[in-house]
Design a protein around this nucleic acid. Sequence first.
DNA 1: CGGTGGATTCTCT
DNA 2: GAGAATCCACCGA
Length: 179
Amino acid sequence: MGRWDGPALAVARSLVGSVLTTQSTVGRTSVTITEVEAYGGSDDPASHAFRGRTPRNAPMFGPGGTIYVYRSYGLHWCLNIVTGEADNPQAVLIRAGWPGEGRALMEQRRGRVDHLADGPGKLTAALGIDDSIDGMHIEALETVSITGPGSQVDCEWKRRVGLTLAADRPWRCVLIATG
DNA sequence: CGGTGGATTCTCT
DNA sequence: GAGAATCCACCGA
């Protein structure tokens, strides 16, 4: 029983406050995850897996811990972690994080010094994540890891954003800043 | 086989 | 707060 075996909502909750780290030849970068969003399968009209398996969403049908990266609006990459059993598509979208290690590298990748990872596309850009890891298993990758959370964090469930379908589901989990 | 629109971001007003 | 930038999977024909 690994941390990716449970339903998307439970994994989503456990990811908030965790640290996502990427390692490459140019350096190491990390963020503390502050916002995630859960997606289901055939029961969730907003999910890419809603209409069944396709070449693009195939990673969502893999076992928990599989990485699903897709292109958004032709421009950005969005990072998902698949959860649960294979062939029961569920995933968690990593929406935002606080910059941690490797801030200078993240600033360089983003081309600015603010708003480094406060959105799904910005987060992948800051961490240097693209579709080269699509379909890989996170535990098998040296270059991507998720640890923690090291301490208890408070979260709030809100409705999903950026969707036209089933956006009302309170499946977006946001870290409550304790000041 | 072409039209369509999105789990977004940036810039300018 | 609105509009543009920009790709490709999916759907209907």
